[in-house]
Design a protein around this nucleic acid. Structure first.
Lengths: 232, 232
DNA sequence: GTGCGTGTGCTTGTATACAAGTACCGGTCG
DNA sequence: CGACCGGTACTTGTATACAAGCACACGCAC
């Protein structure tokens, strides 16, 4: 039906996990996915191995593979990593900001402000905005590492944004950061960035109180089939 | 001859790449490795996919797989990431340092100071030291991300340490960091850490001037067989 | 009703067979 | 002697077959 190569299968699966289309705790069978995607087990299996490396999938040998529940520990880790990288990058902002990148960021913000913006679209713009800021300071490549590490944070955030903080609030925080950067006011930029990232983190804590079944239990017990979240 | 499962194969291959036993630019054939390790292509291939994700292996479809040359861009990225994480972590050091961790760090430093210490042993201790510092500030889990990102940096460093800076110098810098941490002198700890990490980076630049063939060319050209470094 | 034991169906892990494509070596022609 | 052209041997990518093991359901004994 769709992909014939591993890249496509991997991209598809990753998108479905991050968008919560595949719910945390749900079983993902190699055979099942292979049949659904119209490919053999091989590319599916190789994709699952990569997703397991990212912590998005848990594989229990001879038992089954499951979408990881959102792990609060990993969320906190990603939060720390992200703060460290994005705040430190601000210190390396050049005196003269790249005009093309600035135009992109400005255009990005304008699109974020669109009234009836959808959630998925906002997330894409959000990613591009933070990535763009990193590129502005010459550390764009670090985004790949941050991005890979924050899968758990993103999934929780998607729920938080949906039910708690509307995109407009985040867009306003984004604008505050960029304006401070333009002014060359480094302390203000750092403060605005920290405020923004912490707000995101608080959203995650809020959604955890609302939907604990999507989060991993603290005792690290292994989820089995009867614990499945059917998501319907 | 050895491993029968993927974890073993992956660990073996990763070790050989990071220790430069498999030279940058060297071809790694799935069939060849499978025969050498006494397993089929499957676990070997899955391991190579993971190593490719880390950037340690380059796969050219239908052509071959090669050990990545040390990429200066990735080295710089890892350096930035590492500085950001390790310096930021210092800010989160608790007032009361965990005694057990402190004892481990102290013991670690004593072993680093041993006169005739081997290179591999020193590297292990070095990793444990930096990981330990992160754990001290409650961000031990971030080490996994840093560790995965700094493969290129490590390979270059291994050469740098061998031919340029002796382990004793690094051990001294480690001690300076830990002493500042114990005194609770945060600025001094940050300075010492930054000095240490920058020294490592400088070593890499030095070895690059000495052995440019181990590094990727800046134009990003694709290495093919005739460009192989035979390493003998 | 309750508890235990066995069989069945599913899972992942590994090995192998086939498909498709590229680089290189050698012969041939100009 | 040089350039071109084709066969060959290798590569990775995918599909399939086989192996080993766990969980659950069913049925029986108590």
């Amino acid at each position: 039906m769709a992909g014939t190569n591993r890249q496509t299968v991997y991209a598809t699966l990753r998108r479905k996990v991050l968008s919560m289309e595949l719910a945390p705790g749900a079983p993902v069978s190699e055979n099942e996915l292979a049949a659904a995607l119209g490919v053999s087990r091989t590319p599916v299996r190789e994709s699952l191995i990569l997703l397991a490396e990212e912590g998005l999938i848990q594989v229990f040998p001879k038992v089954g593979s499951f979408v990881s529940r959102v792990d609060p520990v990993r969320v906190a880790d990603a939060q720390f990593l992200r703060e460290a990288v994005e705040l430190t990058a601000l210190d390396d902002l050049p005196g003269r900001l790249d005009e093309r990148l600035m135009a992109e960021l400005d255009d990005n913000l304008n699109r974020q402000d669109r009234p009836g913006i959808g959630l998925e679209e906002f997330f894409t713009l959000d990613e591009e905005f933070h990535h763009g800021l990193l590129k502005l300071s010459g550390h764009g490549a670090a985004w790949a590492t941050v991005s890979a590490a924050k899968g758990h944070l993103d999934r929780a955030r998607r729920l938080g944004l949906n039910e708690a903080t509307p995109p407009a609030v985040n867009a306003g925080q984004h604008r505050a950061i960029l304006e401070a950067v333009v002014r060359g006011d480094l302390p203000a930029a750092r403060t605005a960035m920290r405020t923004h990232l912490r707000a995101v983190f608080d959203d995650v804590e809020r959604i955890r109180a609302q939907s604990p079944e999507l989060f991993a239990s603290n005792d690290g017990s292994t989820p089995v089939r009867r614990n499945v979240v059917t998501w319907d």
